[in-house]
Amino acid sequence: MPILLLVTIAATIVVVDQWSKYYIQAHMAPGMSIPVLDNIFHITYVLNPGAAFGILEHQRDFFIIIALFMLVLVCYFFSRIPATFGLMRLGISLLAGGAVGNVIDRIQTGYVIDFFDFRIWPVFNVADIAIVTGVGCIIYTIVFMSFPSKTGENSR
């Protein structure tokens, strides 16, 4: 996958994430919930001061530093990933786009705006979907793809 396409994917994630959060903020009050499928799926406006499942609440600076450090690592290592590992490159692009989307929220408000509510899972957002999908792509690549060894043979 060309780098320009992957940067475009990451940027698209950021734009869609920020637009969806803006829409929720403009049309709902924090805590408000709109049933889409009653007791199955709701749109619920939540201000999350922590990470997944609300862990490490109110550690805004920590999350911003980690996200920025991760983005520096992505920029450094991205070009070193062979072009044949397109799924890993896609995963990193999704992860980066999602991280940027959530770090924008943390910088602006100290919270991440979440709104997809399946009632059996913590409320999440577009950036979270991109992050989880990206990590899944990366893990899949690491587990199931063959990597060239230093001796020239492919190994797992």
Score class of each variant (00 low, 15 high):
N125E: 07
F63C: 10
M88W: 03
A51R: 05
P49H: 13
A67T: 06
R106G: 08
F53Y: 09
Y76P: 09
G31S: 12
F116R: 03
Y76T: 06
Y45A: 13
S155W: 01
M145P: 03
L4I: 09
R80K: 15
W121M: 10
N102L: 14
Q18E: 08
P148H: 04
V123H: 00
A11W: 07
I131D: 02
S20D: 08
D17G: 13
V7S: 05
T8V: 15
F124H: 08
D17N: 12
M70C: 12
S146I: 07
L68Y: 00
L4K: 05
L6N: 09
I120K: 00
D117S: 10
T84F: 08
A29I: 11
G31D: 10
Q108E: 10
L71D: 00
I55E: 02
I40E: 02
K21N: 14
H27V: 13
G31T: 12
S79N: 08
K21M: 15
V74A: 13
G50T: 10
Q108I: 14
R89V: 15
I129G: 01
S79G: 13
V103N: 02
N39G: 12
V72S: 04
P148G: 09
Y23P: 12
E57Y: 05
I131P: 03
E57D: 11
F78E: 07
T151M: 13
N39H: 14
H27R: 11
K150T: 13
D38H: 13
E57R: 13
P82C: 15
V36A: 05
F77S: 11
D117Q: 06
T151I: 13
V123C: 03
G152I: 15
F118I: 13
T133V: 14
V74I: 14
G97S: 08
V100D: 02
R60V: 15
S33T: 09
L87M: 15
I40Q: 01
I3P: 03
L71T: 00
